[in-house]
Amino acid sequence: MIDLKSHGVIRDVPFQQWSTAGHVATRNPFKMTADGNHLTMKVAPEGNGTEILTYEATVTPTK
């Protein structure tokens, strides 16, 4: 999560997932969407002829 005023990182999450070709999933740009408390991330780590990987998570807000 990035603060839009300062451009500083507020929160980050380690993401250690790899494609079947052995590339880290976030090697190339990725798309993340949010719908309520549901997050979806789509990645294409290889480039040409790649598989599209989808990761999903349900987030519980902290109090």
Rank of each mutant, 00 (worst) to 15 (best):
M1C: 06
I2L: 13
D3S: 07
K5S: 08
S6V: 02
S6K: 10
H7E: 06
V9S: 08
I10S: 08
D12E: 14
V13C: 10
P14M: 03
P14W: 02
P14L: 08
P14C: 02
F15K: 04
F15M: 06
Q16Y: 11
Q16N: 15
Q17A: 12
Q17H: 12
S19N: 05
S19A: 11
T20R: 15
T20E: 15
T20W: 09
T20D: 14
V24D: 11
A25L: 12
A25P: 00
A25F: 03
T26V: 07
R27P: 00
N28W: 07
P29Y: 03
F30W: 07
K31T: 13
K31V: 15
K31I: 15
M32N: 05
M32V: 14
M32Y: 05
M32W: 04
M32I: 14
T33I: 12
T33G: 06
A34H: 07
D35S: 15
N37M: 07
N37G: 04
H38M: 11
L39C: 03
M41Y: 00
M41S: 01
M41H: 01
K42W: 07
A44Q: 06
P45A: 02
E46A: 10
E46P: 02
G47C: 04
G47P: 00
N48P: 06
N48I: 10
G49P: 01
T50L: 02
E51V: 11
E51N: 14
E51D: 10
E51W: 09
L53M: 09
L53R: 03
Y55T: 02
Y55L: 04
A57P: 01
T58V: 08
V59E: 01
V59W: 11
V59I: 15
T60H: 07
T60E: 05
T60L: 05
P61E: 03
T62H: 09
K63G: 09
K63Q: 11
